[in-house]
Design a protein around this nucleic acid. Structure first.
Lengths: 180, 180
DNA sequence: GCCGTTCGGAACCGATCAGTACCGTTTGCG
DNA sequence: CGCAAACGGTACTGATCGGTTCCGAACGGC
């Protein structure tokens, strides 16, 4: 049995939180969905907030790894980041960026949730910056920030319109930035 | 006394919803803060959802009017939209775009909340498109969409970093788009 | 085979949720 | 003056919230 309960809770919570929002998912529902005893939940997490933070940290690691892996499998062009995010945003269960959503729900700018979400974005910017450097663009920190701004704008566009056109739009803007 | 209760409820709810999030504000708290009787609330609104929609519709009208008014008071340059949003996002109580936040919290893409938020963004794109046309850019629908994408990306950046640098970043990108 | 840990299940806690019903008062209009 | 509508305040509903506690079963290492 090892300590499956924690992993099951995080996996179930990650899915439920993303689909319906963090505040909208109660502990009881999470416990029922994960098949874990109520007591087991509080053995692994001090509070719902602690679970939320653990879920975000777990998703941060997974998302960054998947992002880098997808980039490694592409042609190495910086513009490939938009193709990578397009594939993620094209999923049927797409509901925006989990970290943006968490940051919005948290409301408190000084919360741990906000800190984790911000750290995720900064890490992603760092990945993009390295990709830009490898493609011969430097200094690439500012350009990487521009790319992240375009990605975040595209996320909201996709969430709003329900299609991937905003990602293509962002990609074309990024292409113009590279050609200057 | 006229029918002050409704206006007071909407004004109080608009402030509380924006500051702390829609789900985080309960009916009782809203009633206490607005000084309205509990019964009066349900005389004016069938449910909390109905209030949420009324608040968003009210904010939509106010925000669009303020946006157009601020633009009318500027030099007419399309890039002025970024100065306008910078002033709004520089407020001490800034907590992102109320419509984006509502859309994120709503989770359901088919909800009325989602519909209202989307309509607000489309209306704002229309205003930007007209501004672009007046400046001699056409067809400006696509360019206006690019501006909106940049604005939404900047909102998330400001919320994340706590300063207005992302707005300046977005403005410079927009300037490059105009010069092409 | 025994012991300690981890587990799932359930009962229970006070607080709060959205929503309803009834109260007496104030208000504006005829 | 008198009536009707709108009002603020209170008490209440059933449901759900996050969190605590106890129990008995299943498990792994020695």
């Amino acid at each position: 049995m090892a300590t499956q309960a924690r992993e099951r809770l995080i996996a179930t919570a990650e899915a439920l939180f993303y689909q319906r929002g963090i505040q909208a998912v109660g502990i009881s529902e999470l416990i029922d969905a994960s098949g874990v005893g109520r007591a087991s939940f509080y053995r692994h997490f001090d509070s719902k907030d602690a679970l939320v933070h653990a879920v975000l940290r777990h998703r941060n690691e997974r998302a960054l790894a998947a992002f880098e892996a997808a980039l490694a499998g592409s042609d190495g062009s910086p513009l490939g980041v938009f193709d990578v995010v397009a594939e993620r945003y094209g999923q049927a269960d797409f509901r925006g960026c989990a970290f943006i959503n968490a940051m919005v729900e948290a409301a408190d700018r000084g919360s741990e949730t906000h800190r984790i979400a911000r750290a995720h974005k900064l890490a992603q910017i760092e990945i993009i910056a390295r990709l830009l450097e490898q493609a011969g663009h430097s200094p690439s920190e500012e350009l990487a920030g521009d790319f992240q701004l375009l990605i975040d704008g595209a996320v909201m566009g996709v969430l709003r319109e329900g299609n991937l056109e905003p990602v293509e739009r962002a990609k074309q803007i990024a292409a113009k930035l590279l050609s200057l």
